[in-house]
Structures are given as C-alpha cells and as structure tokens.
Computed example of a mutant assay.
Amino acid sequence: MTLITTPLQQAQDFMLTNGRLLERQLFSYLFGDGTRELVLQALRAYQNADGGFGNALEPDKRCPDSQPQDVEFALHVLDVLGSLDDPLVQRACDYLDSITTPEGGVPFALPSVNAYPHAPWWTSDENPPASLNPTAAIVGLLLKHRVRHPWIERAAQFCWQAIAAIDTTEFHTLMPVLQFLEHAPERERANHELRRVAARLSQPGVIELDPQASGYVQKPLNWAPTPDSFCRRLFTDETIATHLDALARRQQADGGWPISWDTLSPAVAYEWRGRVTIEALSTLRAYQYNI
C-alpha cells in the first residue's frame, strides 16, 4: 500500500533531513508542536559577544564576525516569534550603534566578510557607506514592535533622507524601504513615499508576472508574501491565485522548495532551501491555500 503524504508532511521530512537546527525549530514552531523558546535557543548561538549576529546566519557568507545583514535575519526570526522584547534585541541595537556610519545608517556589509568564503555580492569596501538595505528593514522591524533604543531615531532619519533621494525599482532596496514605511509613525510622510513606490512598481515590466519565469526574478508573492503586505494592492485576485498555484507546484520531490541563485556549496544551498521552504509554506498559509 502506498502512503499518501501531504505537502506539509513532505516539507517536514525535508527539514528534518536537510535543515539547520534554527530552521528545524522554526518549522516545528510554525507548523508543528515546537516552542518559541527552542527557536530562541537556536538563534542565540549566532549572537556574538559584541551583540551583533554572525556565524553565517545569512548563509551566503561564512563570516563568524557580526554583520548588519545577520542582525536583520535575526530580527525577522524574532518578528515571526513576536519576541522583539527579548534581551538579545537591545544588545543587537548596541552593536548597530557601534557600526553606524556618519550618515546615520549601517552598511550593507562590513569588510570583515572579505576574509572568509562569501558570494561575490557580499564583497565589501574598506569604508562602506550606510545603506537602506538593511538599515530600513532593521528600523522597520524595531518600530513595528515598538522597541525603544537611541539608535533607532538616528537611523530613521537616515532612512527618511535616503528614501526621498531614490527612484529605484530594485527589490533588495525597496523591500527594506517598504518594511520601514509600513511601520514608521509619521504616517503622512510614509504614505507619500509609499505612493511613490507604488507608482514605480506599477509600471509595465517592473514586476515579473509570468508564474513560470525562471532565474533570479521577483514575482508578485515575493513582493506581497502575505495579504497584509503593502504591495498586495498592486495585483488582482486572479494574479495572486495563479501565483499561489505556481508556488505550490514548485515544491520539489524531496519536499523542499528550490532557490534561484548559485551558492558557495551544496551545504549552503540546503541551508537556504530550509529558509525558503518555510517562507513558501508561510505565504501559502497566509493566503489560506490548502497545504
């Protein structure tokens, strides 16, 4: 007799076989009987003595030293848990304050990354400038959960100035910007900038609408991973339904979802696939898609 397994059960097998401890615990918390504390225990292992996060928490760079992007990665995990009141957040904010540039934000990457294996896009200058990616995402997540720290106001001012000066449609810049604008308390100012972003993204050809498109492209569900996402208003119900079907069909025979970029090693690919599998299932569940 052939046992019939659901996509969620297949994904669980993938995670147990291939996922890092952090993603296994997060998967169990979201889709099983896991606990918040077990996820936090796994996440704490990535926090360094300086309060920042490193140790390849973001897998495409194998740097043990703290990096701004790893702080963002950690905050996204804490956001899922609703645990930005954990003491590790204040320590992370102290670290961010220590690496803030004269512009008021934190860099995309610090030069310590250069000494370790890393994807080419992580190579850093010796004196990198502040960047909206990840500063805006970090500030947005902290504002969302009403975290209080002196660094936040300073970094928010950098974000406002940088957002007003850009006219980009680049995904990895705009997603942090959207994270910030959705939670900034200055709503009139934020709504003005959100309208500017929406106008850019609504231009034909900016967002990949073909559900079968391959390669490193960003489709509607990348821009609107939940129905509450700001960018959900940019797409019709039919478009979202079509892309949900396509996302569900991208589950691989091993139970995990694929990634669309080259990694440093097979092990790194599996680390990312664990994260992407959780994101895919979370999006499907958020839209009440049967998994």
Rank of each mutant, 00 (worst) to 15 (best):
N48D: 14
P120M: 04
G256P: 02
H76S: 05
D167M: 04
Q12E: 13
L38Y: 04
K219Y: 11
S112W: 01
Q251L: 09
V39W: 04
F171M: 09
W257P: 05
H145T: 01
G34D: 02
A156Q: 14
D50H: 02
L234A: 05
W223Y: 12
P87Q: 04
H76N: 14
P185V: 07
T169Q: 13
E72M: 13
P68N: 09
R249D: 13
E193S: 11
A137Y: 01
E188M: 05
L264M: 09
W223H: 09
L30Q: 14
S282Q: 15
A253K: 11
P102K: 03
V39G: 09
P102F: 05
V113H: 01
F235K: 00
A130Y: 07
A155E: 03
G82Q: 08
V177T: 12
H172I: 05
W160L: 09
R285C: 00
N127R: 13
G82C: 08
A213D: 08
T236V: 07
S98A: 14
R44D: 12
L194R: 13
P258W: 03
D50T: 03
W223E: 12
C231F: 11
P134T: 08
T242E: 14
P258T: 01
L281I: 11
T263A: 07
S260W: 13
A137K: 02
R146F: 04
E23L: 04
Q179I: 01
A190D: 03
S112G: 05
I259M: 03
E193D: 07
L234Y: 13
T283R: 05
P111D: 11
E208L: 07
Q10D: 00
A280K: 00
N133H: 08
V89A: 12
V77H: 09
P87F: 08
H145D: 04
Q251H: 05
T236R: 11
D97V: 03
Q67N: 12
H118F: 05
P87I: 11
R196M: 12
E271S: 09
A56W: 07
A280Q: 10
A165Y: 00
L96W: 12
F73G: 03
L281P: 03
L178Q: 01
Y287A: 04
T277G: 07
A42R: 01
L143Y: 09
I291Y: 08
W121H: 15
D94M: 00
D262T: 13
T135G: 02
P129Y: 00
A164D: 15
G54L: 08
L281K: 03
G104H: 02
V177W: 10
N191A: 13
V177Y: 07
P64E: 06
A109C: 05
L194M: 08
V89I: 09
H145C: 07
T2Q: 12
D210A: 03
V80P: 01
I207C: 11
N222H: 15
M15P: 00
P7Q: 11
T101P: 02
A286D: 10
I138Q: 08
P227H: 06
V80M: 06
P150S: 10
T123L: 11
F31N: 00
V89W: 12
P134H: 03
G105L: 09
P176C: 10
V77L: 04
E72K: 13
L244F: 06
L88K: 04
Q203G: 07
L142W: 13
T263V: 01
L78G: 10
D79T: 13
R250Y: 02
V276Y: 15
A267E: 14
A156C: 08
L43T: 11
A164I: 04
W272K: 06
Y29P: 01
D237L: 07
P220M: 09
E182M: 14
